[in-house]
Simulated scan of single mutants.
Amino acid sequence: MTDTASSLAADYAAALDWWRDAGVDCDYVDEPTAWLAEPEVEEAPAAPPPRTVARKPASPALERALADKSGAPIGGDKAHWPQTLEAFREYWLSEPSLDDGALRDRVLPSGPAGAPLMVLVGQPEEGDAEALLSGPEGGMLGKIMRAIGLGMDEIYLASCLPRVMPLPDWEDLAARGLGEVTRHHIALAAPKRLIAFGKGAALLSEGADSPVLRTSQIETLIRSGERKKRFWNAWLEFSA
């Protein structure tokens, strides 16, 4: 080693010793250094393409059954429609087309022919079995009748459908003949006046011979004091 190189080495060593004695034993920089490598992210395996299963065509028997119910006329042969209220009650329980062939859980109308008032609702109340409107709606109707001055046994109470139907399409039912059946029912009952509660009853009673007051569903009247007030004002005007 030359004298110059030896002198430089000695100077470097002396400088390092000086900084070490001063407490500086590391090298610092302003920019951060990533000493740890970024973890490798395992890629999720590619999802297999969705399997497509060929849909089996409906059996001819099922297709015929669906075709028979879709848009089928309601009421049966008009030549055999009942001509008395008593016969209509039997028809109400036995005519398959009134509810697409289902005969169970049907609820009969009640009351005398020629009643001072007929009450028509779209369908029975949920849970009705032996009598129509046997739940909260029936309780509300009882209060309305007491305010009007009639007992429940004095009115004729009926529904457009023989049993509960989820979300009925009233326009379709009317077009298929339920409106004619309803008007025939009203004609046999021959009430002095008629209250039609709800959209279904209002639509299907159009063209009835008896004077008709069309108003909200009873369920709506239960929830809304304003609707009760509107109904009562409408009734006072209707019955004047």
Rank of each mutant, 00 (worst) to 15 (best):
V53Y: 14
D17H: 03
W18H: 14
C26D: 12
R227F: 11
P57G: 11
E86H: 09
R20M: 02
S159Y: 03
A175D: 15
E237F: 00
G138R: 06
I148V: 15
A10N: 11
D172V: 10
L108R: 02
D17F: 01
Q123K: 02
R183H: 04
L62E: 11
A44V: 13
P116R: 08
S110H: 07
E130A: 15
A240P: 04
S216T: 04
P166V: 09
W35G: 04
A47T: 11
T84S: 14
L117Y: 01
G225D: 12
L62Y: 06
Q217H: 15
G225L: 08
M140E: 15
A79S: 12
V119E: 00
L157D: 06
A22L: 06
P32Y: 07
A34I: 06
R183G: 03
P112K: 06
E125Y: 08
G177C: 05
L150V: 08
D128H: 02
A13L: 15
I218E: 10
V119A: 04
D77M: 03
I186E: 00
A234T: 08
E125N: 09
I155E: 00
A102F: 03
D68P: 00
A61Q: 14
L173C: 08
E90V: 11
I195H: 03
A46E: 14
V164I: 13
A189G: 00
K228C: 13
K199T: 13
F88S: 04
G142S: 14
G151S: 13
G139T: 07
A9V: 06
R176F: 13
A234L: 07
L103E: 05
R227P: 00
A65G: 01
I218L: 15
D11I: 11
F231H: 09
G142Q: 12
W19K: 08
M1D: 09
E31M: 11
P116H: 04
T4K: 13
G139V: 05
P166M: 12
W81E: 07
L8A: 07
P112L: 02
L8K: 04
S59A: 15
T2P: 10
S97T: 11
R89W: 11
P109A: 09
